[in-house]
Design a protein around this nucleic acid. Structure first.
Lengths: 125, 125
DNA sequence: TTTACTGTCATAGTATATTATGACACTAAC
DNA sequence: GTTAGTGTCATAATATACTATGACAGTAAA
């Protein structure tokens, strides 16, 4: 995993794990890497990983069993889809609409997005 | 103007001015507020505003006349539309497509976006 | 009980963004 | 030339994210 600027590292780690839960790489009940193990793996400090895990525990997507480790909570996926979708529609979409307008973008610029939207719709039929 | 976390202040100031250029609140040749004036207005330090202006000068969207002030460069708008659009299509759109997929969003979620896209297309006819 | 994992906490050090402030140089207008 | 605006630079102080490291406590298995 590579880190970019613009977002703090512990948030990027959180987002990276969230993505794994949403895509199914991590399933409810799965144990996530130990704080020390992941820190070594990502070449960051233990405390930084700890901060990511503490945040995710507070968000209700990780459960903590002291002395054993952190685990993906039972309803992590549903909760994430609900919360992240709400966040997207309320925070990101308005900015996106504005950007589309001032940059004078047209449907052709969004072909990939359309294809993906149609796939999602067909899957739910 | 209010500052949010996640991005540094001097970048947020830059983005705020860029938006004013793109929407037409600021036009090529216009003088932007002096470093000291804007600092007081936004309740930040002179050096922070200076950093935003220096960045925008480097991006070629502000011209600097020592002793006089900073001015919106002649081709700021075209340059911004080109650069920001490229950045959007290469960096943001791929993330957006991925998010749309994992959050299982459908066309209805994007109604506002569609309306805006169609408006843009009609304006260019 | 010992061992080897786990999380947790505290302390100190580093890097960076931001602030606070003063001093200096350029430009225009009086 | 003086004045009042402009940008520019340097210094020191603060806040926060991150690092480095050690010590302690809970858990499970040998």
């Amino acid at each position: 995993m590579e880190f970019s600027d613009g977002k703090t590292i512990f948030i990027q780690i959180r987002d990276w794990l969230v993505d794994q839960i949403l895509t199914g790489s991590l399933s409810p009940g799965d144990k996530v890497p130990s704080v020390r193990e992941l820190a070594i793996d990502l070449e960051v400090n233990r405390n930084t990983v700890m901060r990511s895990y503490a945040l995710m525990e507070q968000e209700g997507i990780l459960d903590n069993k002291r002395g054993i480790g952190f685990f993906v909570s039972d309803h992590a996926r549903e909760r994430l889809i609900q919360d992240e979708k709400k966040l997207f529609l309320q925070e990101e979409l308005p900015k996106l609409v504005h950007q589309v307008k001032v940059l004078k973008m047209v449907p052709a610029d969004f072909k990939k997005l359309f294809d993906q939207l149609n796939e999602n719709q067909n899957e739910n039929k």
